[in-house]
């Protein structure tokens, strides 16, 4: 399926079913990442239960240095 992740269209393997799978695909499982799917912000415990569909708009953000 095709997802738009952080504004970039990306073809994703069909083995990736949930947001949690997607985070592991990027190897970010050990990091603090926050995910929004189609403008809905998810808490961490929703990552495993949120399934991804073709055409979904996904935002993945994190904390960076700032004042």
């Amino acid at each position: 399926m095709t997802l738009t992740i952080n504004g970039v269209e990306k073809e994703i393997a069909d083995t990736i079913l949930t947001v949690e799978d997607l985070i592991h695909f990027f190897d970010w499982g050990h990091r603090v990442v926050i995910v929004e799917v189609n403008q809905t912000i998810l808490t961490k415990d929703q990552h495993g239960s949120t399934t991804l569909r073709n055409g979904d708009q996904v935002e993945i953000v994190s904390f960076v240095g700032g004042g």
Partner: peptide, 30 residues
């Protein structure tokens, strides 16, 4: 304090500020 920004999906080895600073010792003010 921290800022919130998009992850770069093309870069696997991005610096992890939170891990480096051991932020659990601190209160976070995004």
């Amino acid at each position: 304090t921290f800022a919130v920004r998009r992850m770069n999906i093309f870069e696997q080895n991005q610096p992890d500020l939170l891990a480096e600073l051991d932020v659990h010792q601190y209160k976070l003010l995004p």
